[in-house]
Design a protein around this nucleic acid. Structure first.
Lengths: 205, 205
DNA sequence: TTTTGAAGTTTACAATATAAACATCTTCAC
DNA sequence: GTGAAGATGTTTATATTGTAAACTTCAAAA
């Protein structure tokens, strides 16, 4: 009774399946993800997952949702640790985003692999994946009021920032920028440059 | 002998398969792409494609390569039509990129679906997909020399621009910005804003 | 004309997603 | 307690798909 979710046949298979899927994505990539591998890793028969997810897409969707929760947690943690300066908070959560995206490239790819969301993404997931976007808009509005950021529609500013960050990590994770790093810069340097450009664009004091 | 590629059993099945795959991607999306559908649409047996492509991934890779060729052609066409002003040329080819990306979202997605390139992308394809990137760097260098663009490493500037553009079209194509359009702006307005922000960032006169 | 190799077909097989029927354990009404 | 009832798993079965292998056909070179 102290147990939150009483152990049943498996315990909490749904969660275990999501974890297993996560591991497989990280180890073999999204291509290698099969229902059967996930089931096997969780120690159940290959049809067991269907008691928790209507089909494979829905399992992946659950993984994506979990991913956005994790990302959100990371960003919040960083923001809290950044002290009270709004710009510092903003920068810290942005760095956390980049850290997450570049530490788990395959995972990030699945989270933003549009094919799924476009078709089966439900409203709940859409909301989750937009949470940090909404917060960024609020941040920008506040920063403007404090005179820290150039005036303008914060929604448009946020779109521009999100586009740049998402584009950068996507390209970097897909190894499309390698021909640059290797020759002149490290990934970290390029990353810093892009961040700097964003802040310049915002006219941060 | 006037015929470049003499008609054989099929004529030019390789090309026909790429075209068929293109259509399927456009109509049903990348998920719906199966070797057998492609073969059927091209009017051949389901194993025929294996005489031209080692496996499914290589077929897709050929489709991607064709996509980058088409994109490159579009950008060149726009650039040529833009007259002699370097900034106008630059802007025109950028617009062409956005037009392409947003007219064929599924196709664009496949072209930039990193899973493939990361694993099986060969050098030839990598080169193709970087052609326009290299040209952008040249453009920026020239524009700097003409005093039209803020000084700085053009490679880094290009990365920043490409990140923003790619991120924007990716998010837009994946319907991640819908909650913004609907309420206040049209897609075109947001698109223009992002472009403007890029040019501001470059300090274009 | 014969032969040969590329291009295509047929057949076969293994992996996978998923449905359906069956089994088992928890819980809840009594 | 007890005995449904329903949730959770398993087994079995099927259709789709990627791909290998053996076989066929035809253009072109010898």
């Amino acid at each position: 009774m102290a147990v939150v979710k009483a152990a049943y046949h498996h315990g909490d298979l749904r969660t275990a399946l999501i974890e297993a899927a996560l591991e497989i994505i990280d180890e073999i990539g999204p291509q290698g993800l099969t229902i059967r591998k996930v089931a096997h890793r969780a120690g159940v028969s290959h049809a067991a997952p269907y008691r928790h997810f209507p089909d494979k897409d829905d399992l992946i969707l659950a993984v994506v949702e979990r991913g956005f929760e994790l990302l959100d947690e990371e960003m919040e943690r960083a923001r809290t640790a950044a002290g009270s300066d709004p710009i510092a908070q903003f920068a810290a959560s942005g760095e956390a985003y980049l850290d997450f995206a570049m530490s788990y490239p395959a995972y990030y790819r699945v989270m933003f692999s549009g094919d799924l969301l476009a078709s089966k993404g439900n409203e709940a997931l859409r909301h989750t994946s937009e949470a940090s976007f909404v917060r960024m808009i609020d941040d920008l509005r506040m920063a403007q009021d404090l005179g820290l950021v150039r005036r303008g529609d914060p929604t448009l500013q946020a779109i521009s920032i999100v586009s740049t960050v998402h584009g950068f990590v996507s390209l970097a994770n897909d190894n499309r920028l390698n021909h640059v790093y290797g020759e002149q810069y490290t990934e970290q340097q390029v990353r810093d440059f892009v961040i700097t450009a964003i802040f310049e664009g915002l006219g941060v004091n």
